[in-house]
């Protein structure tokens, strides 16, 4: 049952939202070794850095534990950290049941970014991961259909990488245009 449905009051409804510290402690009990930080970050979406290989495990706990109850993957995106030679993938999780929120972050190496898929946890992850693969080249292990989403299938390169260079032409269409002021 979803607390938000039918209820008129904002916020918690029948269940209580947990604050960051409580979420962090609960996670520490259930999968302690997977967390990289000693304390959670602050802000509206507190950041939680996770060991990349165990991110799916943490996510499963976050979704399935009744007290945590993150039933919605609100956003998934990647950031190319070129200077640190890694790509960070951020997962914004939200709970409609308890109305609390959290941001998971996992880093993968820039050369061959590999992370486990979330498609079996939240179907919303399907397209978000495809987009992340398309634009940043992160490969999600176990994704059922990891194809390009936005760019054409025959496109080369991942445009949101910081060192991406725009190709000169695409199927005979030049991608350069001279300034009209020079004419």
């Amino acid at each position: 049952m979803i607390a938000g449905s039918g209820g008129s009051g904002g916020g918690a409804g029948a269940s209580r939202a947990m604050d960051v510290q409580q979420i962090f402690e609960r996670l520490g009990q259930l999968c302690g070794g997977a967390l990289l930080d000693a304390a959670p970050g602050d802000g509206e979406w507190p950041r939680l850095n996770v060991v990349p290989t165990r991110v799916a495990e943490v996510a499963r706990v976050l979704r399935d534990d009744p007290a945590l109850g993150f039933d919605c993957l609100a956003n998934l995106t990647g950031v190319d950290l070129k200077s640190e030679d890694s790509i960070e993938v951020c997962y914004h999780l939200f709970s409609y049941r308890h109305r609390h929120q959290l941001m998971l972050a996992a880093r993968a190496s820039r050369g061959d970014p590999l992370l486990p898929t979330f498609t079996d946890l939240w179907p919303a992850a399907d397209w978000l991961e495809r987009e992340c693969f398309d634009l940043l080249g992160v490969r999600f292990i176990g994704h059922p259909d990891l194809r390009r989403l936005l760019m054409p299938e025959d496109w080369v390169g991942h445009p949101l990488r910081k060192d991406f260079i725009e190709p000169e032409e695409y199927h005979g269409i030049s991608t350069r245009r001279e300034s009209l002021l020079k004419l």
């Binding site: 936005l150 760019m151 445009p159 991406f164 725009e166 269409i173 991608t175 350069r176 245009r177």
Partner: peptide, 8 residues
């Protein structure tokens, strides 16, 4: 014009 995916 700055975009990588747009035909100018």
């Amino acid at each position: 014009q700055l975009a990588y995916s747009v035909c100018d």
